[in-house]
Write a protein that binds this DNA or RNA. Structure first.
Lengths: 343, 343
DNA sequence: TTGAAAGCGCTAACAC
DNA sequence: GTGTTAGCGCTTTCAA
């Protein structure tokens, strides 16, 4: 057992050749005689030698590494997207440096600084929003490093983005609720200040109500990191004119909401409808399964990675991609039972 | 905008000092006069200079990087554990290189080779099992690199491990099922050849049945990567003497099972009981919520990371930790309705 | 308090 | 086909 790993120099010495030959042999980057190759292979085989990527990175100024930053791994929508990034990156010979921000601007910034210091070749980021995260994104742009925003709605054309049309998807979801006869529709959302997606979804919610001449109910914001619903949500649910439908800004929230409602004796969807947003796969397996707008998270991760790599390798131009979403007509929403029949 | 990022040498030139002084200033690693410090700060501020970690890593032979390998990010149990690793690593100034194996031995091996090449300082791994993954683990041991196996049951004392007692937890779960009057209890599991945890859980299942003089039913194995349950499962569920209870080797499987059963008109828990294993947090929010054995995934990740770092930094000895599990008495299991009253 | 210089492990001219 | 060599960007003696 070697105390310290070998260097190419030592391998060269043992094989009786020069370091250049070893380098050529190990990288198949130039001619090497069979004799030399075999000598080298022998040394490598019984020493377990492996080229040191750090030396190579320094010399070639290429790290073959991508930085990936998401708010949290504990929401499957992000875990799935990271999984999508990882699979493509791995195929293309890129490593993944992973960080999570816990929805905190300060952690976004420090994660990005770490990535920059580590000389990653590109970044896949899901940030709070372009405004609040401006300082951090500024760093990336100043470093002239390609990056793609994932999930964040596209707000400019200067950089790449992959997302869905959150506002439209929310609009469609709420319209569907309205067409099922619901009039008192509340929105429960993760803190708007921590997610531009929530903001867009809320806008879609308002659009839908406005188009139907229905008054919106004050949005109830909850934290992202805790599963417990706030008192505000509970008070809303037990009040006199309690909503007949809830639009939750994420599936995780919707799942908690369904549970909380049933604890209050309100059955979903018989007494009240609940819809989520994201389309995490577990939602499909629930009973009732979740009505929601589905984001193709893994595909977003795939695209983010392959686009990023083509920017790195081929200097491809920045691009904004809006992927199609679709509504999953789950069992957690239903015709409002007291519907008076107005159309 | 700089085409290529600056080097310490260029900063030194611009600030009119030597590279050694810049290094000392930026790392607070030695005395620097106020005058020099200010000159350097000025240059750094308006150039956005950042020390290149690769140069530093080569010089110091420290990468401050941990490699993390899990079978899949799409199972929240692993995503949560990775999240736990990440949080501790970040606090300690370590970066995370992430890879997933999709439960494939070949990908485990190549991921580990990439980690080795990248000169990570330690590894957190969840592998198929120590036997099958032997070749890959061999590489790590030969490289003399500290690692901790996470989730994999401890089979030797030569390396670190953090897990729960899978066999005991499964035993307890199945005993509880038996005490609720169930006698026809089936086990549905992810392929045993892809997970030593499944194997242990199956042993616990058999222990429990054996202790009560009940005949086990042939285990039904399903793939990990697809949510659809196999025909074998369906045939079992609709057969004559179909089980009154299902023990699933993961919560994800249990959730799919509940859904599949209800599609067959069998209500959970009224007609049939289903229990899972893992304790993913979403399971708590389901209706019915999941009876399961809870693994403290995030805590396992936390411990894996901090233990690994103390091995790296302080040469702490390898350690095997078995964390306590607990049973979540969810709503997905119930007294068997046709219970004849035997005790 | 500072600078010169060696060298971490590697690749890629370049000369042979 | 092969070897020599000059760095890549940094830290760290060591001497001043």
């Amino acid at each position: 057992m070697e105390r310290k790993s070998l260097t190419i120099k030592e391998v060269a010495r043992r094989a009786g050749v020069s370091v250049a030959t070893v380098s050529r042999a190990m990288n198949s980057s130039g001619p090497v005689s069979t004799e030399a190759r075999e000598a080298i292979e022998r040394v490598v085989a019984d020493s377990g030698f492996r080229l040191n990527a750090i030396g190579r990175q320094l010399k070639t100024s290429r790290s073959h590494t991508l930085g990936v930053l998401v708010p949290s791994l504990k929401n499957p929508i992000f875990a799935d997207a990271v999984s999508g990034v990882e699979h493509i990156a791995e195929q293309a010979g890129f490593r993944i440096l992973l960080a999570s921000s816990s929805y905190k601007i300060s952690k976004e910034k420090s994660a990005i600084e770490t990535f920059l210091t580590s000389r990653v070749e590109g970044l896949v980021l899901t940030v709070t929003d372009e405004q609040s995260s401006h300082a951090a994104l500024e760093l990336v742009e100043h470093a002239n490093l390609p990056f793609v925003l994932m999930f964040n709605p596209c707000k400019s054309n200067s950089h790449s983005t992959v997302s869905i049309d959150n506002r439209l998807a929310a609009y469609e979801l709420v319209c569907e609720l309205i067409s099922k006869g619901h009039r008192r529709i509340a929105m429960i959302a993760g803190n708007l200040s921590q997610s531009d997606r929530s903001v867009e979804r809320h806008a879609g919610y308002e659009d839908a109500l406005y188009d139907h001449g229905i008054d919106p109910i004050d949005i109830v914001e909850v934290g992202f990191e805790k599963p417990e619903l706030s008192d505000a949500v509970m008070n809303l649910a037990i009040g006199q004119d309690s909503p007949t439908a809830y639009f939750c800004s994420t599936d995780l929230l919707a799942i908690s909401m369904i549970r909380a409602l049933s604890a209050l004796g309100r059955a979903v969807p018989d007494d009240v409808s609940v819809v989520g947003f994201d389309g995490i796969s577990i939602g499909e397996s629930l009973t009732p399964n979740l009505a929601t707008a589905v984001q193709p998270a893994e595909a977003m991760g795939n695209w983010a990675a392959s686009h990023l790599i083509s920017r790195i390798e081929e200097g491809a131009p920045a691009q904004n991609l809006v992927l199609p979403h679709y509504l999953r007509h789950g069992e957690s929403w239903a015709q409002f039972p007291d519907d008076t029949g107005f159309t």
